[in-house]
Design a protein around this nucleic acid. Structure first.
Lengths: 211, 211
DNA sequence: CAGCCACAGTAACATTTGTCACACGGACAA
DNA sequence: TTGTCCGTGTGACAAATGTTACTGTGGCTG
């Protein structure tokens, strides 16, 4: 068994052996460096990307270059948007940026439809991806529609901690401000209040979560 | 050809004859009155609903009963959420309320998977629904993330006019405020400004769009 | 007609968020 | 060491939005 097969199996344990063979025969293995932008708003989507290793963030871009974080992609996941856009020659509505170096396989969109019909495990994966991403996006809407910045910041920090699996968040206030589409000063202000409430400890380039 | 067959054919022209026969054999025809709540946050989803006539609005509910409009459903459409939740015994994340009296067919979720495999036109419909709803939700995120209330109000009015196909919007300021999750006074204020800019004419219970 | 009610307008004020200006300290390089 | 960034903290102010309170008006009903 090739090294690649093993890592696909590991990241996507529910895929059938048939499917994994097909993936290997038709996909290309790629790596991306932290900071790379894999997909950009307005670009045509030609491939679906399955993440084997690393981490991506998916965000929406405003007209004046503002960012707005939607969610993270991790090993065993795929970009719902790229799955959705498959049928038509669609342009991407979002931007994907590498957070941690990524290993991935890219699959030509043309195969999507075929696999949906022929591979039960692929079908289930796609439906599952749709569902979970849709739910995630609904949660994002809740946050910006119903909650003020202080709650959103708290939510953001918790989500980040969960994604990286630790309580130390190594981000500058500026970076956080970008992802929440607010300003650094506001983030500093709110973090200071959180520190006073005993929810975090603040260090240079690091926020220690106490929740 | 039964009356029902005709209206399904009309609302869903891309469905194959086979599929329509299956729908008729397995679905139940239902009507709902304006104001009815068809689906509510937290409820289990047992059916998919295909709209034949009328109009629904889908919104998200906040913890304190706030509403937040996501999109409208019209004839020829189905609730993406109900399609998505199909596989698992999922509870609804949204609420659906009837705007104009609705005629619809409801389909047991159990058939979804089967049809996905056996009916190409159903498969395409589902994928198309996913895609368009996802895009719509992304647009909603743009609005609340990047735009101030005045722009959101403008967008809301335009969308509403489009949905009802006319330039006269028969809504009170209070109703609009609910859907945008703001207060009536704010809506009044902004509408007044829009009137001064010559974008609308204001009447009792009616807003006339001049854009 | 009188009374009631929903809708709309508006002033005054509180709160939240965004913006500008500037100060401080650590890290690092010349 | 000195100077230069970068990240952070903070005060002062502006703008947008939420809140409270009150007014007027039209339509409906008893």
């Amino acid at each position: 068994m090739s090294k690649e097969t093993i890592s696909i199996k590991k990241a996507f344990p529910n895929f059938s052996n048939d499917l994994i063979q097909e993936i290997e025969a038709n996909s290309s293995f790629q790596t991306f460096k932290a900071g790379d932008v894999i997909m950009r708003t307005g670009q045509y989507i030609k491939n679906t990307i399955l993440i084997l290793k690393g981490q991506l963030k998916i965000y929406r871009e405003g007209e004046d270059g503002e960012e707005f974080l939607m969610y993270y992609l991790q090993p065993g996941q795929a970009c719902a948007i790229s799955l959705i856009c498959s049928t038509k020659n669609q342009t991407s509505q979002i931007t994907a940026k590498v957070v941690e170096d990524v290993e991935a396989v890219t699959i030509p969109l043309a195969l999507m439809d075929k696999w949906m019909m022929n591979h039960r495990s692929w079908y289930e994966f796609v439906i599952y991806t749709y569902r979970t991403r849709f739910e995630e996006v609904l949660e994002v809407i809740d946050n910006i529609a119903f909650r003020a910045m202080d709650e959103r910041l708290e939510f953001y920090l918790k989500r980040h901690a969960k994604a990286c699996g630790c309580k130390e968040i190594n981000l500058s206030h500026q970076e956080i401000a970008l992802e929440l589409n607010t300003s650094r000063e506001v983030v500093s202000r709110l973090l200071k209040k959180m520190e006073q409430r005993g929810l975090v400890n603040l260090h240079r380039n690091q926020i220690e979560l106490l929740m």
